[in-house]
């Protein structure tokens, strides 16, 4: 339940702001000049704020759509991402957002149309297809009942066939997808970890079974699905855990509905990792067999190789290699 909404002066009269405030009638509304004076301020605690994050309604200025880091993608040549929302209602202990941001408040950029115009510009400027990843700094669907972002994005991408959209989620908020016929240029990608890891680390996230049911429903409706086994998390019996997960996933979903599968090991830039440790010093994940390589904290090399090798082999027993993208950043 959101109890505080900060509203940037610039968007005070925006119809989307009015609609969102109507959906939160009991929330205290506080004016602010720019979201950064709340969100980026030094000397605040992400961990404390995570107890009761506020919502900041703001306008995003250019650039709104950025190139993805190298290695991020599912086979396309031109890959971009955009973030209409910063932060997430879930609380995954490995999430890089809690190491990257100073505040756990949600920042929602309400000028969706400006994002879509920029997408259209980029997609129109290049021959062939361009991929646009939503859900880079948030979960694409988890706050959908409040934001209506995915609904707006689907309506716009329907008219942009050269633009490919990935909605990345751990949620089961399917309303905008149920309400529309499937789009050939949209992939709904779900992140999954084995059951025990979900229980230990993905606080507030719908269970594996519920996500599988949601995916199966989307598959029945004709939507194309992505599977993101990212991050890979170590347990002594990790191979058996991932085997079991894959068996469940591929029993529940028809292969024809699966557009792409990717996996990526647990990895964090050192400064983010240090922030996470400050927030959660007693978290076993962060006390694991980790090491620093080139400014990144990840599992020790030989362990990471062993995990990626075993899990990849297991995965390739279920999916054809051409749909597999191993090194999502």
């Amino acid at each position: 339940m959101i109890t505080t909404v900060y509203v940037e002066e610039e968007v005070r009269e925006h119809p989307r702001v009015r609609a969102i405030c109507r959906r939160l009638p009991k929330a205290v509304r506080i004016a602010c000049r720019r979201y950064g004076e709340i969100f980026n301020r030094r000397g605040q605690s992400f961990r404390l704020q995570k107890r009761q994050p506020a919502l900041i309604l703001a306008a995003k200025r250019r650039p709104r759509v950025l190139e993805t880091p190298a290695g991020y993608g599912v086979g396309g040549e031109r890959n971009y991402y955009f973030s209409h929302l910063l932060n997430c209602p879930y609380d995954c202990r490995y999430c890089f957002l809690q190491g990257m941001y100073r505040s756990a408040h949600y920042v929602l950029f309400v000028n969706y149309e400006d994002f879509f115009d920029e997408v259209a510009e980029i997609a129109g400027a290049a021959a062939g297809e361009s991929w646009f990843f939503s859900g880079y700094d948030c979960d694409s669907l988890a706050l959908e009942p409040l934001t209506g972002f995915a609904a707006a994005a689907l309506d716009r991408f329907r008219r942009l066939p050269a633009a490919r959209l990935e909605l990345r989620t751990k949620s089961v908020q399917l309303a905008p997808l149920r309400a529309r016929p499937p789009l050939a240029n949209v992939v709904v990608a779900f992140s999954l970890t084995p059951e025990g890891i979900w229980r230990d680390l993905e606080h507030g996230v719908p269970g594996v079974e519920r996500r599988l049911a949601a995916m199966a429903e989307l598959a029945r409706r004709g939507w194309r699905l992505g599977l993101r086994f990212d991050p890979l998390i170590y347990r002594r019996d990790f191979a058996a855990r991932y085997d079991e997960l894959f068996a469940r996933v591929f029993a529940a979903l028809p292969l024809a509905s699966i557009h792409s599968v990717s996996l990526g090991p647990f990895r964090l830039p050192r400064p983010f990792f240090k922030n996470l440790l400050r927030h959660y010093p007693d978290e076993p994940l962060l006390a694991g067999p980790l090491a620093e390589h080139d400014g990144m904290i990840s599992y020790r090399h030989e362990l990471e190789r062993e995990m990626v090798g075993a899990v990849t082999a297991s995965l390739l027993r279920h999916v054809p290699r051409e749909r597999f993208f191993p090194c999502a950043a």
């Binding site: 109890t3 505080t4 900060y6 506080i30 004016a31 602010c32 000049r33 704020q49 009761q52 506020a54």
Partner: peptide, 27 residues
Amino acid sequence: AGRVCDRGSGECWYPPQLWRPPPATGE
């Protein structure tokens, strides 16, 4: 106070309101 502003400098602070239920709040 959900927001504290200084008339002289224009600077503002936003003490996070993490309480449930929230108390009466003002600027």
